[in-house]
Computed example of a mutant assay.
Amino acid sequence: MDWSGDLEYFLEAPIGKYITGPSWLFAYPTAKFSALVFWGRLSGESLEGTLNIHPRVHSGASRPHVALLDARRVEHVDEGGFAIGVNYVRTHRESLSSSISQLAIVHSGGMLGSVAAGFFRLIGAPYQAEVFTDPVEALRWIALDDPQGTLAALDALYTSTTGTTELLRDLRAHLEKNLDDASLAGATRALGISERSLQRRLAESGTSFQKEVVGARVRMAGRALVESSKPLSQIAFDVGCASVQHFSTMFRKVTGMTPMQWRKRGT
């Protein structure tokens, strides 16, 4: 697919193209399928650009067509970001209902999964919508001919847009599941790569193993702060920090906020 840096050009001829924002990309791989991919922390500011993707973008596509909303990499949605989604669907309900027949929503589970599942229950879906944690299953539900190939293509767009390689994505997923034993040896065994090769490829991506361990701890802690009422001492222990002081210092260094400021902002 070709990247389009011009919104008007994309709206007029979107098939085979994609457009990007600070935390999202919108793609039209074929006339029968469109995809909206989100990542990171979604706020009203970061999602403002999506308001410019008027439903007329679907005029050159099959009517109706099927669509995917991929939120697997979303870390948080604030009130402003949620409001933009609600207002967009409410404003363009009639046009969306005639343009899209099925929408598959993919999320990573937890509190964000509840938000995704409850979104259309709150406002009423203008088309048939289902929620999944498995992206391939989601693409099969909308009856795409090659769900695995489609997913690989969308993941490649995400990688090129954000600079996140497949290796880095796999390492981050491994670390988030194994923070109690976040060792270089354990990571290389899981990824099937030598320690030297992993360190070299991380350096090529502008990071290091230690930076990725800290990033995984902060991401998991950030989710726990928003999605649970656990005390800081428990969260610090869960993400592998020796003390609350160590945890708080690390968290603030990475996010610019104390853990309690993060919790307050996210609730």
Rank of each mutant, 00 (worst) to 15 (best):
Y88T: 02
Y88P: 06
V89H: 15
R90H: 15
R90D: 08
R90Q: 14
T91L: 03
H92Y: 14
E94N: 14
E94K: 15
S97L: 05
S98C: 05
S98G: 09
S99A: 13
S99R: 14
S99K: 11
S99D: 12
S101G: 08
S101C: 06
S101W: 10
Q102F: 11
L103F: 05
A104L: 02
I105E: 03
I105D: 01
I105S: 03
I105Y: 09
H107N: 09
S108K: 15
S108W: 14
G109T: 13
G110M: 05
M111A: 07
S114W: 09
V115I: 09
V115A: 03
V115W: 14
A116W: 05
G118N: 06
G118D: 02
G118H: 07
F120H: 07
R121I: 00
R121Y: 04
L122E: 05
L122P: 03
I123P: 00
I123A: 06
G124I: 05
P126D: 12
P126V: 08
Y127N: 01
Y127F: 11
A129C: 08
E130T: 00
V131H: 11
F132E: 09
F132H: 13
V136C: 07
L139S: 07
R140I: 00
R140M: 01
R140T: 02
A143F: 13
L144I: 06
L144T: 08
L144A: 01
L144D: 00
D145H: 13
D146M: 01
D146T: 02
Q148G: 08
G149N: 07
G149V: 02
G149T: 05
T150P: 12
T150M: 07
L151V: 08
D155V: 11
D155P: 15
D155W: 15
A156F: 14
L157C: 02
Y158A: 12
Y158L: 14
T159V: 01
T159N: 08
T162C: 06
T162A: 03
G163N: 10
E166M: 11
E166V: 11
L167C: 06
R169W: 15
R169Y: 15
A173G: 05
A173P: 02
H174G: 00
H174E: 00
H174C: 00
H174V: 00
L175F: 10
E176T: 10
N178Q: 01
L179S: 05
L179M: 08
D180S: 05
A182P: 09
A182G: 03
A182Q: 05
S183V: 06
S183I: 04
S183T: 10
